[in-house]
Amino acid sequence: MMQKRKYLSYTLPLIFFFMMLIDGHVSSSLLSAFSVPMDFTSNLLLMFLMFATFQMEKTYLVIWSSVIGLLYDSYFYNVIGINLILFPILVILIYSLFEHVYPNTFTIILSFIVFVTAISVGRVFLLVLFKLTSTTILDFFARTLAPTLCLNIILIAVLVVPLKSMFNVKK
């Protein structure tokens, strides 16, 4: 157990970086595959951050979520602050939630859906606040949140069992 945690502490930053890149590719591939005006946002990085909370210390994960949030912002938005703020806040919320909720498959899936919704709402709120986008609530729900939730529900349903095994989630 301790050996796995030590191994993960060295490999997780690379995994987070690759998940960030894969998120971008999955999202853009789906956007180009469907010629509809919708925004599919993959959240594999958030999924790995959530599962990492079961193995890693809070301080370690908050620091790395900040670093990956900074990279995410500079790579996707060219504006620093959106995910730099949201990722550490969500990691802290994930730790808080799973201190009180037993992490079985069902609660992990439901929690992930809540966190995907939170990060999507947080992103659009900050983007509107900084005047980087102008969108209506209806547009956001219909064109961004609904497709994002559909995609991420499929991803978590497929990956929950392998990730539970990888991160040794047996609380």
Rank of each mutant, 00 (worst) to 15 (best):
M1H: 12
M1A: 12
K4G: 03
K4W: 02
R5T: 14
T11L: 14
T11Q: 08
P13M: 03
M19T: 06
L21C: 11
V26L: 06
S29N: 04
L30P: 02
A33M: 09
F34R: 00
S35F: 10
V36I: 14
P37E: 11
P37A: 10
T41D: 08
S42C: 15
L44K: 02
M47Y: 15
F48H: 09
M50C: 06
M50F: 02
F54P: 09
Y60C: 09
W64A: 05
S65Y: 13
V67Q: 07
G69Y: 01
L71R: 00
Y72L: 06
Y72P: 01
D73M: 04
F76V: 14
F76D: 08
Y77I: 04
N78H: 14
V79P: 05
G81A: 09
G81R: 11
L93N: 12
Y95T: 09
Y95E: 06
S96W: 12
L97G: 04
L97E: 05
Y102L: 05
N104L: 09
T107Y: 12
I108M: 04
L110V: 09
L110D: 01
F112K: 14
V116S: 00
T117L: 12
A118T: 15
A118W: 08
A118I: 12
I119V: 15
I119T: 10
V121I: 15
V121K: 02
G122W: 02
G122F: 03
F125E: 12
L127C: 04
L129C: 10
L129M: 14
L132I: 05
L132K: 04
T133D: 11
T133L: 14
T135I: 13
T135K: 07
T136H: 06
F141P: 03
F141E: 00
P147D: 07
C150R: 01
N152C: 04
N152A: 04
I153L: 08
L159I: 08
V160W: 03
L163E: 09
M166L: 15
F167S: 01
K171A: 10
K171H: 11
